[in-house]
Design a protein around this nucleic acid. Sequence first.
DNA 1: ATTATCTATAGATCTATAGATAATGC
DNA 2: ATTATCTATAGATCTATAGATAATGC
Lengths: 215, 215
Amino acid sequence: MAKNVINSPEMQETSRNMEQVILETAERLFLERGYALVSISEIAREAGCNQALVHYYYRTKETLFQRIFQQKARAFISGLFTSDHAGEPFAVQLGRIIERHFSMMAASPGLPWLIVSELRLHPERIAAIKEQVGEEMLSAAGRFEALLKAEIAAGRVRQIELFDLLMTVVSLNAFFFIAEPVFTRVLDMDPAQVESFVQQRKKQITETALNSLRP
Amino acid sequence: MAKNVINSPEMQETSRNMEQVILETAERLFLERGYALVSISEIAREAGCNQALVHYYYRTKETLFQRIFQQKARAFISGLFTSDHAGEPFAVQLGRIIERHFSMMAASPGLPWLIVSELRLHPERIAAIKEQVGEEMLSAAGRFEALLKAEIAAGRVRQIELFDLLMTVVSLNAFFFIAEPVFTRVLDMDPAQVESFVQQRKKQITETALNSLRP
DNA sequence: ATTATCTATAGATCTATAGATAATGC
DNA sequence: ATTATCTATAGATCTATAGATAATGC
């Protein structure tokens, strides 16, 4: 805590390195297969150290997981609500939100599956996340809701609850990344095809969501 | 195989019963938590028999799972394509398809999660399903695609690929049931509230999907 | 005689910890 | 002297099978 930040470059480098490598390896594996199906020995093997070292740095599998999961879940949720496009027309703002949310998942394509799976399997994990982002989410939602209501009143958007709109956006975005590995396999795509598939779908989702709002 | 179908009612009753009870228990548990997180001893315990009996009837965990999974996966996919509303307007037909698909999942709310999770975790399971429903799906899709193209040509539906339309429908339907337990917890709903939540969302999904198609 | 059910156990995990050794900092 | 890393192991699973016993059908 109150110790020196860095003493000798090399040593701290090495130590931080293995600690960091373990964290990153764990993140990758958890995103692929979830908490229960990743073993500590697998993390250690892929990180290139002994199994006990994972415990040395992170004590238990659960604390290691939580650290990764909570940070990711926060990004997932708050990514949906961070909008700094005030002044722009509603449709443009919404389009940007959808695209940002989509891109965030494209950078971590295992995330939507991990979040829903872990929250389904361990509902007690919901509380921590709710506490972390609940406030922020509610206030951002409030602001956006005012905007939506104004659009509806002006007759530019059909009557719809904010919840349904968000649910639609998240469904389209998240399910795409949840199912993407399956499609990729079924259609036997190479990485370039996958990339173009993702980009096309992003466009379609924005179009679909915006179109569905017309009065 | 070529044996008598039923000999003595009681005996066969009892035997079929435990065999059946095991199958149903396994189905319920697999739908809740997936293959890896359900143990044979748990199935046995909940079915009310000894662990070895599960192996006696179904040999391995894998064969027991496959039997359940393949039947369910087939229902999930073919449910989307079975349409016997020829003659009705396109929008009505599509609305019916969406509602049927939604209702099928409502009857097995763990199914969408189970399917995507297992196919993500074990891509080799894709092949069997593809073989089972691939043909049927392609021909049903072909018929529906003709309908869609005609609607587009008539200017009643915007330019869209069948794949994107189906993806939208499945995303909206499936993701709802994938995330539903989480929402239910977050909003702390009782069963009656959940039921009405599900019904409302069903309506919204149909409306959203149809609305998004307008030119 | 056959089919259903149980007990017991082998062998393969997996998490967590204790305690030894190696590397680094003062 | 402290921090990083390893070896070894306890204790708790979990799947699958062998072999005993109980129930049922002929």
